[in-house]
Design a protein around this nucleic acid. Structure first.
Length: 222
DNA sequence: ACCCAGGGTCATA
DNA sequence: TATGACCATGGG
């Protein structure tokens, strides 16, 4: 992985898809909710669940904690894993309220904020980093399955890497350190790119990165 | 009738 | 440390 490779891919995706303006949410707290709901789940399903939560005014930590886990599960059903996610949402709300909400967490250093999030049951590295980046405006590069796949295919990495190792590699190779805006766009662009082209079964013919991509090369040779 | 989705936890070897 | 089972709805 080189700074050159990282930024070239970024520029290429940005030109192709334009700015994504993530995270899609009407209010800040909604980002925490969405980050849990979208775990291994397509965003269209999450939108349904969030729409329901909004319609019953359940998009505040207090309102989410006021429901039973079973009630909450019913509200978020379309997002899948609804029993698991209902408990995870409430665990996150509990931490959020106990920590003093945005007002108090705002002034928390990124590393301790990250540790705090990871202590919450059901919040793993990707969920924590999504929240850090999009809800707390911390310059953290979010790794997801798409990132692993894309970077592998492009040869930026040899294959899937442990989460922290890849995050550290990207952040250290980014020239002059990435900004919140750049990291936020990059992650969103990778998701946009994955949506139609960089799939498990890739559609390389229409891919703007085909000249660098192992799958595209393999397909064109065969 | 498959495969896949903007993961994470837990038990096992 | 590294797999595998499990969680579950819905789109293509």
């Amino acid at each position: 992985m080189t700074p050159q490779g990282l930024t070239t891919v970024y520029e290429r995706l940005l030109t192709e898809y334009g700015r994504q303006h993530w995270w899609p949410a009407e209010e800040r707290f909604e980002i925490l909710v969405g980050a849990v709901l979208t775990q291994n789940t397509s965003w269209t399903q999450v939108e349904k669940a969030i729409a329901t939560l909004r319609s019953v005014r359940c998009l505040t930590p207090e309102a989410l904690l006021a429901r039973t886990a079973v009630e909450l599960g019913e509200l978020i059903r379309p997002a899948g894993y609804y029993n698991v996610k209902a408990r995870r949402l409430q665990a996150l709300c509990h931490w959020f309220v106990e920590s003093g909400g945005f007002a108090a967490l705002e002034s928390c250093p990124t590393e301790s904020l990250r540790r705090g999030l990871l202590q919450v049951h059901g919040v793993g590295p990707e969920t924590a980093d999504s929240i850090l980046l999009y809800a707390f405006s911390r310059a953290v590069f979010v790794i997801d399955a798409y990132t692993q796949r894309l970077f592998s295919r492009l040869g930026l990495i040899a294959g899937p890497m442990p989460y922290e190792a890849l995050r550290a590699a990207v952040e250290s190779h980014w020239p002059a350190g990435g900004s919140v805006d750049q990291y936020g766009e990059y992650h969103a662009l990778i998701v946009a790119h994955a949506k139609h082209i960089c799939r498990p079964r890739p559609h390389c013919s229409s891919c703007v990165l085909a000249h660098q991509c192992r799958h595209a090369r393999a397909n064109s040779v065969s």
